[in-house]
């Protein structure tokens, strides 16, 4: 491998590059859909080209107002949100957001959301044709809507149908993003893999709720919302570990990742890359700190390649048969 390039690019001797879905990411640290806008927002704080990849917020065919307020409630170690996929819609994503995205040197993933299978296919076709996008992440799991995403993500047959339909027409790699609001995430993961997904990302937000005891009303305008942030990390890690052992496509770990140690846990559990979500809100430089922290970790442990760490979980002997 061409280690020299990586070393000179990062100014270090460790190689953080990972390959995924036919793409090479310069490091495994991505930022997750809905937590990084369209990239422009955070480009005002730091050079976002240093990231491994960026995922745009969900794109729907038509623009959406999203849910009425209050959309966010802070809970212990996390937040509940129900933004209802407020977005500019496909047409304006292409005309207004893509020009900026094309100026970036970092792979940019679109996140596709729909209410029927044809929506996903329609959006995917337009985005493939538009140019400037590196991959499609199918949001079959958005927990924020009363209809749409939720129904697909919990049903292996529905997930299979969407992934297969998009794969058929897509010239771009397809990542399927899984919901944790299921009993058996492995069954859904396998369905997506069988349908041809090039990678899987998980988890989207588990559903949660909070009540104001004085008024006895739900604290969120939408009653329930997605729980995100440090609180969900153990749940996410368990699911990523289960899925990584059960599929052969790359897995992208998401859920509560805030520090390099958090990210490394996911890699050790078998993830090829990770996405940083809610941490962007309360530690805006978290992705950069995590990249630096990963480098330090590799050096400290005498590893020169992040890949050596992937899936290196040491199980206690009692579990040997697993």
């Amino acid at each position: 491998m061409n280690k020299q390039t990586a070393a000179s690019a990062t100014g270090t001797s460790v190689d953080l590059r990972v390959e995924m879905a036919g793409l090479v990411l310069k490091n495994p640290v991505m930022v997750s859909s809905g937590t990084f806008g369209y990239g422009e927002e955070y480009s005002r704080i730091y050079d976002i080209n240093r990231l491994g990849a960026i995922v745009a917020k969900a794109t729907t065919i038509r623009p959406k107002h999203g849910n009425p307020p209050p959309r966010v409630v802070e809970v212990v170690g996390g937040m509940l949100s129900c933004c209802g996929q407020q977005n500019v819609g496909l047409e304006r994503f292409i005309s207004e957001k893509l020009p900026f995205i094309r100026t970036l040197s970092v792979p940019f993933f679109a996140n596709v959301a729909g209410e029927i299978v044809d929506d996903y296919v329609f959006i995917a076709e337009k985005l493939c044709a538009a140019g400037g996008i590196a991959a499609l992440e199918l949001n079959v799991s958005c927990p924020n809507l009363q209809q749409g995403g939720m129904a697909f993500g919990v049903d292996p047959a529905a997930v299979k149908e969407i992934v297969a339909a998009v794969k058929k027409i897509s010239s771009l790699p397809v990542v399927c993003k899984l919901t944790p609001n299921v009993t058996d995430v492995v069954a859904i993961a396998r369905a997506a893999e069988e349908a041809g997904a090039d990678a899987l990302s998980l988890i989207n937000a588990p559903l949660g709720m909070a009540i104001d005891v004085e008024t006895r009303r739900p604290k969120l305008g939408n009653v329930v919302g997605g729980l995100t942030g440090p609180a969900i990390k153990p749940l996410a890690l368990r699911m990523v570990w289960q899925v990584a052992q059960s599929v052969s496509v790359p897995v992208i770990g998401i859920g509560g990742i805030t520090t390099a140690e958090d990210a490394l846990e996911f890699i050790i559990a078998g993830a090829t890359a990770v996405q940083i979500g809610t941490a962007n809100f309360f530690r805006p430089l978290a992705p950069l700190e995590i990249i630096a922290g990963m480098e330090d970790y590799l050096k400290k442990h005498g590893l020169d390649n992040i890949k050596e760490l992937r899936g290196s979980l040491e199980l206690p002997p009692a579990r040997g048969g697993h």
Partner: peptide, 14 residues
């Protein structure tokens, strides 16, 4: 408004 990110990314402060 209640805010999270402060930079226009999270859509919570509408």
């Amino acid at each position: 408004s209640h805010m999270s990110c402060g930079v226009g990314a999270c859509q919570s402060c509408i």
